[in-house]
Amino acid sequence: MLDLNALEKDKKSGLPPVHTWHPEFCGDMDLVVKANGDWIHDGDKIKRPKMVTLFSHILWYENGEYFLVTPVEKVRIQVEDAPFLVTKWRYIDTDKGQAIEFTTLTDDVVVLGEDCELWLAGEEHAERPYISMRYGMKAMLHRNVFYQLVEELVAVSTPQGNGMGLMSAEQAYLLIPDE
C-alpha cells in the first residue's frame, strides 16, 4: 500500500514536489480514474473528496502511464481518459487582459493561455475538449462546462485557420473552423 506519511507540501504551489522524486517502481494498485472523474479503488468509488485530491496531487505521468508517487514508492494506476475533470470556469482579469480560469474536480486551478492550452480530440463529430495540466497530463472539460463555453464563442484567427473559438490571455483557440 502507498505510504502517504512521506509527503511534504511545496510551500509555493501547494503541491508536493513530485517532479523531484524518483523512487523505484513498486507494482500496480487497483485504482482506476474513470472518464467521468470518479476514482475507483478495489471496485468501490472513493467517497472522500480530500482523499481523491491528495491522490491527484501525487499523480505522475510517464511514458503513457500514470503513477502515484511518494519519495519512497511509485505505484501504477489506470486512467480511462483524462485524470482530471474541469467542473467550473470563470472569466478573470490578468496582466494579459481577460482570461478563462478553469477549476478541476480536485481543486486544481489553471488559466487558459497562461497555465494551460485547449484543444479538441477524438473522432470527427465526437470530439471532446481537453486542457493541458502539469507534468504532461490533461483534463477533460465536463460537458456542462463545454456547453457554457460554446455560448462564449467569438470569431478568431489562428495559425490553424479562422473560425469560431475562445479568447483568453490574448490568445485565440480555434474550436470550429470556417468551411
Results as ranks from 00 to 15, higher is better:
residue 61 Y to F: 15
residue 142 H to A: 15
residue 165 G to L: 08
residue 63 N to G: 11
residue 129 P to V: 10
residue 67 F to P: 11
residue 130 Y to F: 15
residue 164 M to P: 07
residue 120 L to I: 04
residue 58 I to W: 09
residue 98 Q to M: 14
residue 137 M to P: 01
residue 121 A to C: 03
residue 167 M to T: 11
residue 128 R to K: 15
residue 133 M to R: 08
residue 110 V to I: 11
residue 63 N to C: 07
residue 172 A to M: 13
residue 64 G to W: 11
residue 168 S to V: 08
residue 93 D to A: 14
residue 134 R to D: 07
residue 97 G to R: 13
residue 127 E to W: 02
residue 88 K to F: 01
residue 170 E to G: 11
residue 68 L to M: 09
residue 156 V to S: 05
residue 114 E to S: 09
residue 93 D to E: 15
residue 81 D to K: 10
residue 121 A to I: 00
residue 151 E to V: 03
residue 67 F to T: 05
residue 145 V to A: 02
residue 160 Q to T: 13
residue 77 I to Y: 07
residue 111 V to W: 04
residue 90 R to S: 05
residue 82 A to Y: 06
residue 110 V to F: 04
residue 119 W to Q: 08
residue 76 R to N: 10
residue 106 T to I: 04
residue 57 H to P: 01
residue 97 G to M: 14
residue 88 K to A: 07
residue 60 W to E: 15
residue 101 E to C: 12
residue 139 A to I: 00
residue 74 K to R: 15
residue 105 L to S: 11
residue 91 Y to I: 01
residue 62 E to Y: 10
residue 148 Q to Y: 02
residue 134 R to V: 12
residue 130 Y to C: 05
residue 108 D to L: 15
residue 76 R to K: 15
residue 154 V to P: 05
residue 134 R to P: 00
residue 82 A to T: 09
residue 137 M to Q: 13
residue 119 W to A: 08
residue 134 R to Y: 08
residue 151 E to W: 02
residue 63 N to S: 15
residue 139 A to N: 03
residue 105 L to W: 06
residue 119 W to I: 00
residue 153 L to F: 08
residue 132 S to A: 07
residue 168 S to F: 09
residue 97 G to V: 12
residue 168 S to I: 09
residue 107 D to C: 12
residue 120 L to G: 09
residue 68 L to A: 04
